[in-house]
């Protein structure tokens, strides 16, 4: 138990912060504690959660994937077109995942083969993919996505839990297993922690980075599918700015922007915290302008813990010593 406590210290901390936030919202409006509100929170963390766990893989390698918001739009458009033209919904889902993988792979190509800085490379594809989305649709939304597709994600379990919540949890579980139980996971941490050392250890750095960007693309594709099912339409402007929230969720969950540090569990709680915050502020009816202020403060505060950790450890050590003397 103690081992888990130290290993997932950050994750537990974020979870506690989330609970405290929940308590505060409940105190201000008891309605917050309703089962339906809980469901709403989980539903609303799905998109950001999926995007965050994807972008976390890119961040783990010391990179970033700014193009996720745009990949998200393209996948939505592609799958919407497939469905509207009568493709089998499961084939359409596969097609959507494939689109995500290919777009992620292109990011990987830019970062590893052309050796572009990830920030610049994905800044480029961000605009490129958005442009493709506009060109493909001519700016017009794709509508009337059939229910046969939408029900795959929108269906409900008893208690009102939507299938897409289950899908998100499944993605997080898979991400957790990849990171903690497979060679790929170790390689991702090694490359992010010290790329040169990883290379000198015989780690295939290029392959590892490709995997990171492909996973990022694939998770984004799943998010795109969920969005399409939820709205029943896709448009080129979808997902603008979503990458910032995804980065925030990953960062709150303890992902280091320098790479090499971060867990799926942490990112899950990061996304959960943001969802609690979002729903909670609507529930207590906070003015929209102030919501930005509060969200910003929470992100800064959450990130500050990283730096405070050392100070606190030093403080307690000194304290202990003084008491023993």
């Amino acid at each position: 138990m103690k081992a888990i406590g130290t290993k997932y210290k950050r994750e537990i901390l974020v979870f506690l912060a989330t609970v405290i936030l929940g308590v505060v919202f409940t105190a201000l409006n008891p309605n917050f504690l309703m089962w339906r509100t809980m469901l709403t929170i989980f539903q609303q963390m799905v998109l950001n959660g999926l995007l965050a766990v994807g972008i976390m893989f890119a961040i783990l390698t010391g990179g970033i994937d700014l193009s996720i918001g745009c990949t998200f739009a393209i996948v939505g458009i592609a799958v919407a077109n497939c469905c509207v033209k009568g493709m089998n919904p499961f084939l359409a889902i596969l097609a959507g995942l494939l689109v995500g993988v290919v777009l992620g792979m292109f990011n990987g190509f830019l970062v590893t083969n052309l050796k572009l800085q990830p920030f610049i490379a994905t800044l480029g594809t961000m605009s490129l993919y958005r442009g493709v989305a506009y060109v493909v649709t001519g700016g017009a939304p794709v509508t009337n996505v059939p229910d046969s597709f939408r029900n795959i994600f929108n269906g409900q379990l008893p208690g009102g839990i939507r299938y897409y919540v289950i899908v998100m949890i499944a993605v997080f579980v898979i991400a957790h297993i990849i990171l903690s139980k497979t060679r790929t996971g170790d390689y991702l941490y090694a490359v992010g922690g010290n790329e040169e050392a990883a290379k000198l250890s015989g780690v295939n750095v290029a392959k590892t980075k490709y995997i990171a960007y492909i996973v990022s693309g694939a998770c984004t594709a799943v998010a795109g599918l969920v969005m399409l099912a939820s709205l029943g339409s896709a448009e080129a402007t979808a997902g603008i700015g979503y990458e910032t929230n995804a980065i925030a969720a990953a960062a709150i969950g303890g992902t280091s922007m320098a790479g090499g540090r971060g867990t799926a569990l942490g990112t899950f709680f990061g996304a959960l915290l943001l969802a609690v915050l979002k729903v909670g502020m609507v529930v207590i009816n906070v003015d929209s302008f102030w919501q930005y202020v509060v969200t910003g403060l929470i992100i800064i505060a959450a990130s500050y813990f990283e730096f405070m950790k050392g100070d606190i450890a030093a403080f307690t050590a000194r304290h202990k010593k003084e008491r023993s003397m």
């Binding site: 941490y189 010290n194 090499g260």
Partner: peptide, 12 residues
């Protein structure tokens, strides 16, 4: 700077 991952344990 090149020998090991400074974020990781000896074991890893």
């Amino acid at each position: 700077t090149q020998g090991f991952n400074k974020l990781d344990t000896n074991c890893n």
